[in-house]
Design a protein around this nucleic acid. Structure first.
Length: 501
RNA sequence: GCGGGCAUAGUGUAGUCUGGUAUCACAUAGGCUUGCCAAGCCUAUAACCCGGGUUCAAAUCCCGGUGCCCGCACCA
């Protein structure tokens, strides 16, 4: 489906819509409706079951969304998220100063004041790349973070966090103390991050407020032991820098073991690449041939990363590969910066070891982007039908409960729906219009199971207290006793967990 | 931010050039009928993105804004 078509369908079903819509909408902000909210919850639960489930020493926490200025100064976001921007007074195009000055000053503009950059612009007669006029302005700083007036005086500054990861780094020392004081230690956060994007686009892909799920694994740089033999033969769809430079866009399947043996990547890194690919493929159900691990070059990597592969998925609605997650080896950048910034020694002292500053492996996942991915890849038409083939444990509604004839079977069906809901099964009762339309509505919402109460359910005889159980993908039915329903349905609602070491 | 395109019920649309009661389908709600896969009939609800201007009269023409799409730029 095309972007607009898919978005229209999601709006119509109440999955999501523009924020402040009655005022004309707000660029880059979206609200989730009942289906979208439920789906998002389940995706977050599936993410946590999988990634936090990698170890007993990985834990979810909820740090604050607001960061004091000292934190973002230490993290590098104040400096590196701020790009001096120049505006062309003639055509009003906006450029990063660094881009415009690429030829006359290849070493970059770090450390220069706006006035100094302006001086370089005019003394070198730098022209506007768009209209070739000489009317480039003195640069002004543009920061992607939302700044806040903090406190009564309003003179102190604070920022909405541009990534959830910072809270994990700030909490590391406390987590070490309250935990088992062992490495690796994992800190996971699911929450909002905020960026003042210049041009929000493509609905859930570039938002100003979005949900990230991130796992920071703190480990001993001298050794992060993983059961690599278990994943050695797994094939990974990688697109490495050398092949990209030759113009290749398709990934090649490479054995995990070869990425280590001849690919120059550490075992612990490849091991987590495998688990990340398995999550996208086996848990979210994305087709394997649409997934690509895209290696970022020295220049493209974020300033803190040593190794970075983006997990990209090819989406029809956005006509190409889109980044839905990433695996970052951040080294000791974060803890060392926060050690310096705070004046606190963040190194740890494991039993029988010299003190050390842990390194960080970051597994990051864009929740909203994957809501879009799950819509793009699983929502579509089959003949006359529109159905959303979500994995059953992600479906917003697990089971639809209908009376075949509303007048006769409604009380029984209602009671059944309540009974299932009480067992923790998201059930929705529907007695409207015809039975066929109810099935169709549920197909479109991704509901994997439907139960229908009919005459046989109520009649004395062998079928008493049985209902039909209908499956979304095949439309086949079978008769199941009421008492067996929970046992049939509940296992399908549990998200997969990784095999632990 | 730049260039181009677009904006009409919940969704998709006709009407806009050439100003005059806003079309149709699906969806939604209710009724009759039917009773296991979007059936039929009847009824109801429901829209011209916002603001200004021109005009006796604006969905239609003009100006400004907002939002969306495509491309460029940007993208920790």
């Amino acid at each position: 489906m095309k972007n607009e078509e898919l978005y229209a369908l999601l709006r119509r079903r109440g999955v999501l819509w523009p924020s402040a819509e009655i005022y004309g909408g707000t660029q880059g902000l979206y609200d989730y409706g009942p289906l979208g909210f439920a789906l998002k919850r389940r995706v977050e639960e599936a993410w946590a079951a999988w990634f936090v489930g990698l170890s007993h020493d990985y834990h979810l926490i909820e740090p604050a969304e607001i960061l004091p200025e000292a934190v973002v100064r230490a993290s590098g976001h104040l400096e590196n998220f701020t790009d001096p921007e120049v505006t062309c007074e003639s055509c009003h195009s906006v450029f990063r100063a660094e881009t415009v000055l690429e030829k006359v000053r290849p070493e970059g503009v770090d450390g220069l004041t706006p006035a100094q950059i302006g001086e370089i612009l005019s003394s070198n007669h730098v022209k506007c790349p768009t209209c070739a006029s000489l009317a480039l302005s003195v640069p002004r700083p543009f920061n992607l973070m939302f700044g806040l007036d903090w406190g009564v005086t309003g003179k102190e500054r604070a920022y909405l966090r541009p990534e959830t990861a910072q809270g994990s780094y700030l909490s590391f020392s406390r987590m070490w103390d309250v935990g088992r004081r062992a490495l690796p230690l994992g800190i996971a956060v699911i929450g909002k991050a905020y960026r003042n994007e210049i041009a929000p686009r493509q609905v859930l892909f570039r938002m100003r407020a979005f949900t990230q799920a991130e796992l920071q694994i703190f480990f001993d740089p001298a050794g992060f032991s993983v059961p690599f033999d278990r994943v050695r033969d797994e094939l990974l769809p990688v697109l490495r820098v050398d092949r990209r430079e030759r113009g290749e866009e398709a990934p090649e399947l490479v054995r995990a073991g070869d990425l280590v043996a001849s690919g120059g990547l550490p075992e612990f890194y490849v091991y987590h690449l495998v688990h990340t690919v398995r999550f996208f493929r086996d848990v979210l159900g994305y087709p394997a041939d649409r997934i690509r691990l895209f290696e970022k070059s020295d220049k493209e990597r974020a300033f803190y990363n040593r190794i970075q592969f983006d997990v990209e998925v090819r989406l029809e609605s956005l006509s190409g590969y889109k980044e839905l997650g990433a695996v970052h080896y951040r080294g000791d950048y974060d803890l060392s910066r926060h050690s310096q910034g705070s004046g606190k020694d963040l190194s740890v002292h494991p039993t029988g070891r010299e003190p050390l500053l842990p390194h960080v492996l970051e597994l990051t996942f864009g929740v909203d982007r994957n809501i879009w991915g799950l819509s793009d890849l699983h929502l579509g038409t089959e003949g006359e039908r529109t159905l959303w083939k979500l994995p059953s444990y992600l479906a917003p509604v697990a089971v639809g409960v209908f009376p075949l004839i509303a007048k006769e079977h409604a009380p029984y069906a209602l009671a059944l729906a309540d009974e299932l809901a009480a067992l923790g099964i998201p059930a929705q009762y529907d007695a409207g219009s015809s039975i066929g339309k109810r099935y169709a509505r549920m197909d479109e919402a991704g509901t994997p199971f439907c139960l229908t109460v009919d005459g046989e359910t109520l009649a004395e005889g062998p079928t008493k207290d049985t209902v039909t159980l209908r499956f979304r993908d095949t439309r086949t039915q079978e008769r199941v006793a009421r008492t067996d329903l929970a046992a049939r349905i509940l296992p399908a609602l549990r998200p997969p967990r990784p095999a632990r070491t």
